Simulated assay, not measured.
Amino acid sequence: MLIETLGKKHVREILDLLNFHERVYFGEICEHVAINKGNLSKILNLLVSFKILKKEEEEEGKKLNKTYYSLTDFGKEAYSLYNVEKEIESKYSFE
């Protein structure tokens, strides 16, 4: 199930962003990933349900709460699978 989740469209882009930045709020993810907000929300919720991401909400006074996402320890290990993929592909060139 993990490999299937990591292979979904836009997941790698999201995890790349979160690996580079410790904590990112929803609006920032929207700016960096070309996906509509509804689909982004579904993907983020899926990653949270698999404990790949942690979700935190902070109150912003009278404004709406900001929702922040960060990689969990499990998420960091899962993200490392992308590097394993690169290593295997470079070792066994399919050209």
Rank of each mutant, 00 (worst) to 15 (best):
Leu6His: 00
Phe94Tyr: 13
Val24Glu: 05
Phe26Ser: 06
Lys51Phe: 08
Glu31Asn: 13
Val33Met: 06
Phe94Val: 14
Ile35Asp: 10
Asn65Phe: 12
Phe94Asp: 15
Ile43Met: 00
Val24Phe: 02
Lys86Trp: 03
Glu13Leu: 12
Asp73Ser: 11
Gly38Thr: 14
His10Gln: 12
Leu64Lys: 15
Lys51Ala: 11
Asn19Val: 07
Lys8Pro: 07
Arg12Leu: 08
His10Met: 08
Cys30Tyr: 05
Thr5Ser: 03
Asp16Phe: 02
Tyr25Gln: 11
Glu31Gln: 15
Leu18Gln: 04
Val11Glu: 01
Asn45Gln: 13
Glu57Asn: 11
Ile14Cys: 03
Ala78Leu: 02
Leu46Cys: 10
Glu95Thr: 07
Leu2Asn: 00
Glu13Tyr: 08
Glu31Tyr: 07
Cys30Gly: 08
Gly75Ser: 06
Leu81Trp: 00
Leu47Arg: 06
Ile43Asp: 01
His32Met: 11
Gly75Tyr: 02
Glu87Thr: 13
Tyr82Leu: 01
Leu46His: 10
Val84Pro: 03
Glu58Asp: 07
Glu89Val: 11
Leu44Tyr: 12
Lys8His: 10
Ser49Glu: 08
Leu18Ser: 03
Glu59Met: 09
Lys86Thr: 14
Glu31Gly: 13
Ser93His: 11
Phe26Ala: 05
Glu77Trp: 03
His32Asp: 10
Lys91Ile: 02
Lys86His: 04
Thr67Met: 02
Val11Asn: 03
Lys86Asn: 12
Lys9Tyr: 09
Ser70Tyr: 11
Leu6Tyr: 00
Tyr92Ala: 02
Leu15Lys: 02
Gly75Gln: 01
Val48Ser: 05
Glu95Leu: 11
Lys42Asp: 12
Lys8Ser: 09
Ser70Gly: 09
Asp16Lys: 08
Val33Lys: 06
Gly61Thr: 07
Ser93Ala: 12
Asn36Lys: 10
Glu87Leu: 14
Glu60Pro: 04
Val48His: 05
Glu59Lys: 11
Asn65Pro: 14
Leu71Gln: 04
Cys30Met: 15
Glu87Asn: 10
Phe74Cys: 05
Glu57Tyr: 11
Glu89Asp: 11
Leu2His: 00
Lys86Gln: 09
Glu31Lys: 15
Asp73Trp: 05
Leu40Phe: 04
Glu13Pro: 07
Ser80Cys: 03
His21Glu: 15
Leu64Trp: 12
Val84Lys: 07
Lys91Trp: 08
Ile35Phe: 09
Thr72Arg: 03
Leu47Glu: 09
His10Asp: 10
Arg23Leu: 14
Glu85Asp: 10
Leu53Val: 04
Lys54His: 12
Tyr92Cys: 02
Val33Thr: 05
Glu31Arg: 15
Val33Pro: 06
Gly75Thr: 02
Gly75Phe: 03
Glu4Asp: 09
Glu57Phe: 08
Ile29Lys: 01
His32Thr: 09
Cys30Thr: 13
Asn65Ala: 15
Lys76Asn: 07
Tyr82Met: 00
Val24Ile: 15
Glu22Gln: 12
Lys76Met: 04
Ile43Val: 04
Gly27Thr: 15
Thr72Asn: 04
Ile14Pro: 00
